[in-house]
Design a binder for these strands. Structure first.
Lengths: 344, 344
DNA sequence: CCCAGTGATGACAACGTTGTCCAAGCCCTA
DNA sequence: TAGGGCTTGGACAACGTTGTCATCACTGGG
């Protein structure tokens, strides 16, 4: 990775500093600082002269230097999985809104589901001295953050819990949501239900699989190996899984898909399939209402908002024990989940 | 807006500095700096002692202080309209990837289509001394950025051009795309076509409206006032517009929608309508393929990537005149745009 | 007329890092 | 053995800001 900051000569047109402003206004450095920060103890006339100098020079305070003195940066880091995933956009935006209300700016970074990249990103943010860190984990070992947290970086995990450290986490009820979604299919008469999910090392994916199994077990239904397909969200992989489940010796009559990306591919695959097949997906999707796709919706914005609020509560001095908050999910019946199994 | 950095006492557990590391390793301050930065001139034995001290203390270099010395921050700011809009997620992600390849981190901020907020955000980023700024304009006067650009902040505008200043811009061909989309409808026999778009003070919205008019004029077709409805993307507003156009004395037989949010609402409204109505939308939408919605697609990721590349070229010293790059659009025929007008 | 009190102002150190420069130790050659 | 070069290390200033403290000019009361 190239490193900009290491390049020797700066091409910057030099910026005016408070010293320049002071010289131009014929006042002391500290007086400029006072004006800029709205501190009291400056006569209106002096203030006017300073403001004129600021205006004339196009001065803007260097917050980097300020940070060095003050300790706090009014900056928060958000490490997520992929900003291009429509699930994370609203989450990120919600974090941003809370940060903004607290006067903080937001660093954004995507881990691309790579633990090393997650770590690299989180530590780079710590080196920039963010006040707080919100992390959607890609990895399952976050001990690397311990020194940072001890040093005072408030840290909240979202969507998935931290691995091997004790930290705040804000999660959706993946287990309960999946269980409800599958139970919904069972209630509509299905007995052979397939599960297509993300890689099980991802916490949410494992939880949803667990929810699927729980619902089946609660109903006294068996689960065949051929009905369970965890793995990548690659469209080819998912399409193949759909095809195989529908062609198995004991074919499934309904599918539960483990997240938005899987659902999209499953919907496409089912559209190509002849008979209608019941489907419930985890995560809502834009236009799913028009397609009549029944989903278990989680509130991405609420996840982000809750996490950010918790973060700022800590930054405001709250000294509570790390806590795990679980947000509920909502089943939205739109048709695909209410299709009855074929009369056999 | 509250200001975190202004709070007096820092709750931070104090972090070790290079001085602490030097003391513990029994070497000079500068030697630690050398080790941390991989400079030569340190014996392996000394280096080992320093690394041990770093490890033991959990030291991490303070990049804020570093920045103060070096001038560059290896930080780029992105001001966009709304991170929760699925159009901007991929754009932001593309910018991030380019930034990452150059060793830079990304600040993200949403203007919420509010010019004041755009300015506030952009200037806050400048105060943080970002090396470069990528802006999706909400306002139409960017003279406030002139001092910053003179001071060396590389600036590139995306999606919409800057107002009242001369600056790089990377745009999609809104005019051409809209003209092609409307021409497509005309080619399928439509003569009364409605346009529902975003507020015309937004550059892209105005351009698309212009493209619509051009296509109609090229075909020698009249445009009735009742067929043109620029305005907010509020679902109620858009639904009403759809209803009115379909119920007008000379009802439209096809609609062109000006962006992704409008399209979504139009699709919903048309689904409630009895007869099929032809539709072409600007911007692609997830699952539009399944719904058979014909769209004029722009490549959001390419917009972001191109803008970021241009930004870093400038940061690398390129001293070219400001330029306007226009990226082409693609018409994706999926059914809704190929519906013939009713036999009259 | 003097002194304490008040308000405006500036000098200076400090934040944590890096660039510059100098010193000490070493090895080599003449 | 003197002199030169190379390697290693550290002292110090500087980056641009803010906190502390001292100074100065006034004010009003005794």
């Amino acid at each position: 990775m190239a490193d900009i900051a290491r390049r020797p000569e700066s091409r910057y047109g030099t910026r005016p500093t408070m010293k320049d402003v002071a010289a131009r206004a014929g006042v002391g450095l500290k007086t400029v600082s006072r004006v800029v920060n709205g501190e009291r103890g400056v006569t209106p006339d002096t203030e006017r002269r300073v403001r004129e100098a600021i205006e004339a020079l196009g001065f803007r305070r260097n917050d980097s230097a300020r940070v060095l003195r003050k300790g706090r940066t009014a900056t928060v880091g958000l490490v997520l999985e992929d900003l291009a995933d429509p699930f994370y956009g609203p989450l990120s935006r919600a974090v941003e809104e809370v940060a903004r209300a607290h006067g903080a700016l937001l660093f954004n970074g995507s881990s691309a589901e790579d633990p090393d990249r997650e770590q690299e990103l989180a530590l780079a943010l710590c080196a920039r001295r963010v006040d707080g860190l919100i992390v959607i984990p890609a990895g399952d070992d976050h001990r690397y953050l311990e020194p940072e947290m001890r040093a005072g970086v408030a840290t909240v995990f979202v969507d998935r819990p931290a691995g091997r450290i004790d930290a705040d986490a804000v999660l959706s009820d993946s287990f309960g949501g999946a269980r409800d979604g599958v139970a919904h299919l069972i209630a509509h008469g299905h007995r052979r239900i397939g599960f297509i999910g993300d890689r099980p090392r991802i916490h949410t994916a494992a939880e949803r699989l667990r929810g699927y199994r729980a619902a089946m077990e609660d109903a006294g239904l068996p689960v065949r190996d051929a009905w369970v397909s965890p793995g990548s969200t690659d469209p080819d992989r998912v399409s193949t899984a759909v095809r195989e489940m529908l062609a198995a010796p004991e074919p499934v009559t309904a599918l539960f898909s483990g997240n938005n990306r899987v659902t999209v591919t499953v919907v496409r695959a089912l559209a190509r399939h002849g008979r209608p097949v019941a489907l419930v997906g985890f995560d809502d999707i834009e236009l799913a209402d028009l397609l009549g796709v029944t989903v278990v919706a989680q509130d991405a914005a609420a996840l982000g908002r809750t996490a950010a609020q918790r973060l700022f509560r800590r930054l405001d001095g709250a000294d509570e024990a790390p806590e795990r908050l679980v947000l509920g999910t909502t089943l939205l019946a739109r048709g695909s989940g209410e299709i009855a199994p074929p009369a056999a």
